[in-house]
Design a protein around this nucleic acid. Sequence first.
DNA 1: GGACTAAGCTGACTCAGGTCAATAAAGCCA
DNA 2: TGGCTTTATTGACCTGAGTCAGCTTAGTCC
Lengths: 243, 243
Amino acid sequence: MTTTQDPQRRPGELHCEGCSLHSSCMTRVLSQGALEAFDEIIQQPQPLKRGQALVQQGQPFRSLYLVRTGSFKQVVRQAGRQDEQVEHFFLPSEAVGLEAIGETHCPASVVALETSFVCELPFEAFEALAQRHESLRGELMRSMSRELRGDQRQFCLLSGRTAEQRQAGFLLGLSQRFHLRGYSRYRFQLAMSRADIGSHLGLALETVSRVMGRFQRQGLIKVAGRELTIRSLEGLEDLGEAP
Amino acid sequence: MTTTQDPQRRPGELHCEGCSLHSSCMTRVLSQGALEAFDEIIQQPQPLKRGQALVQQGQPFRSLYLVRTGSFKQVVRQAGRQDEQVEHFFLPSEAVGLEAIGETHCPASVVALETSFVCELPFEAFEALAQRHESLRGELMRSMSRELRGDQRQFCLLSGRTAEQRQAGFLLGLSQRFHLRGYSRYRFQLAMSRADIGSHLGLALETVSRVMGRFQRQGLIKVAGRELTIRSLEGLEDLGEAP
DNA sequence: GGACTAAGCTGACTCAGGTCAATAAAGCCA
DNA sequence: TGGCTTTATTGACCTGAGTCAGCTTAGTCC
């Protein structure tokens, strides 16, 4: 079942060229030669199962990761507090670990929400490669900048907004991210629990559940367990943008 | 009064070497030669007065800025909403505009909170320089990564915390930033209004005012208008870290 | 397949913090 | 220096969402 049991040291599916995510991955800007060099440094660790940690807060920072399949949450445990805070969710083709660059240790843990595969980029080798390829450097900078804008979006979602506005914004954000990566914008799995969503949005899990119910009764969405169907994108947008 | 009226094209205070902020500026990593090249590309625009915009949301992105003196707020006006959201405050030696890299237009406005001076780094020239100097590239990446971690901190502050915890965290954060830049950690000016703080923390301005009062009555701080004195760092920390 | 555990839903109650309103203080400009 | 505008403080009132608790459904492991 595990692809790494393949007798070859570098099985075919490790090559970026031909990877189904290539067009939305940061490698899409690389020339043929650079792509081959990139292939050389990529590692493909064992798949992670639901609940397993890809990165542990406090451990030495060594690698960036690109999500291939599945999804992750990034959680922070703060000094002197016993509860965890969900910072981010990562979907396929998104980069994990950008916030640790320049640090010796990882400021947050990253945990699989379902069985998930990643590409590992050992940071030293990655940096050396970026040294030589302007396009890769540029793409890394753009990724970081994009994440900064994503954080801005998240602030706007959290600050001074009602539970319904937050949740509408959250669902719309997910929808957009799935859409950008070639999945349906109207129908997707919520790999995260209500508690995870609540922590991410600064709401109690009961509130998440109630708002989901309300949205469903209003005909905006349909929820069957963790499968979400968006019935009215406009309705959600109106909510999210309301004063 | 304005330094730019100086007849010389490049008055002395434009040189990075000898700038009082040099040791906390991103240029501190540069070699002598690189520093001179850096001096060449830096512009020093007119000082901005309280309320003037350094960057206007929606305008073309052209430059990064480094705060020399004074302070700024970054505000976002969202489509379909009339109120503004304060995302960030910028203090001396901090970099403005990192979240616009890779975009054609600025995603937020940046407004002076008091009379302020900046160094302007036209992005094209800056990028060309970074091309040639690894240390500058590295420092830029570290700045961006540091800002990502700052955003994480901000999430933790906003999500599921009481007004007192947010405000304690906010004041501690300011204290730390001033301290890192060589100012007092116990006593500084709040250049921003209560409304700005409220918007930044997701609180009503009345709540900000009340919490300030409460902190003062508890002997944690002393507020005289916009001058803040921290009486008990530990007290604020206990509050911020409480479960 | 049954027992156990985790996840999700719903109701009742409470309170932190939002809103509205009135007042006071502080800048600001002529 | 006085009038004007902006900013801050304080009080009264009300509501959105947190907490606690009980129940249901789904998932997992012998």
